[in-house]
Design a protein around this nucleic acid. Sequence first.
DNA 1: GCTGTTCATCGGAACAGTTCTTAATTAATA
DNA 2: TATTAATTAAGAACTGTTCCGATGAACAGC
Lengths: 158, 158
Amino acid sequence: MAKKTKKSHDANSARLSVDELRRIFENAGLRLTHQRIMVYNAVVDSKEHPSAETIYEQLKKDIPTISLDTVYRTLSTLDRLGLIKRLQLFDYIRFEPDLSRHHHFICKKCKKIIDFHWPEIDGVSIPETLKSVGEVQDQMVEVRGICKECLAQEGGEK
Amino acid sequence: MAKKTKKSHDANSARLSVDELRRIFENAGLRLTHQRIMVYNAVVDSKEHPSAETIYEQLKKDIPTISLDTVYRTLSTLDRLGLIKRLQLFDYIRFEPDLSRHHHFICKKCKKIIDFHWPEIDGVSIPETLKSVGEVQDQMVEVRGICKECLAQEGGEK
DNA sequence: GCTGTTCATCGGAACAGTTCTTAATTAATA
DNA sequence: TATTAATTAAGAACTGTTCCGATGAACAGC
């Protein structure tokens, strides 16, 4: 009753079923524990690129005994298994469930991260000079600025 | 004699003269101290996106009494004045002198950061959806992969 | 069912990078 | 030279993250 009904998912972060999770964990020789399921679901359901701390605070409501260490370890495990993605954009490490190619708008003020897509960029082939630098595995545009909410606040508080 | 002759600069990180620095500091109501000049020069001369610790270790050779705290404070000041740029891509905070638009290749293995240019990307205009998200101030492509040196090492050590 | 083994978990301690504190000293500018 | 900001030293504090030793749960083979 007091529970939030948080169900709105993007196409690219649909939650895997427990059976699918079990298969992935078993293949990796790992056990699928309650905590692991809960951490996974928390990241997938979240839209705010949460930090370990955020996930921890959230899960404590349902599992009061969960430890921060477990959250950290589990997030690492999930990242290693490719189920979520680790991001380091600021002082915090954050996690996101969207594994498809996308980019980030980062508000310099409130540090909010907003995903966006940019197909025009995704189509541009990597410059020649980069090929001699190394093997490219991943690319992402990071756009920084001030988000609408912070702009409104700035204008209002003057 | 034991001094390194490190003079190769990119076009975009030409060192400001002491007079130019003085003017900038004066405008900001700050004093231009020996340490500040040295820290500034160390970043501008460096090609490796150094951390505070790296700068500190380097400067100790010339100023044995310099404190790590001063390095941290000075790097912040220089960033605030727009003379260098602060980067947080990994666990360390790093600094770079190149203020022009460029992008970063980051080696996942040795954590080296290599600058590169990508004019094709710079010309692409920002997607419509972003305009409703906020005010864009800065954009940068982050490419991750394995650099040539690490690739060679990987092949060799097998 | 038991028994041992293999993990995952817990709680707290440890760690690393960064910032802050206080007081004394040094050095830049008017 | 006087004023005042910046630096130093030595350490504490802080924050995010990881490690450690003990405990406990789940599973395999008997």
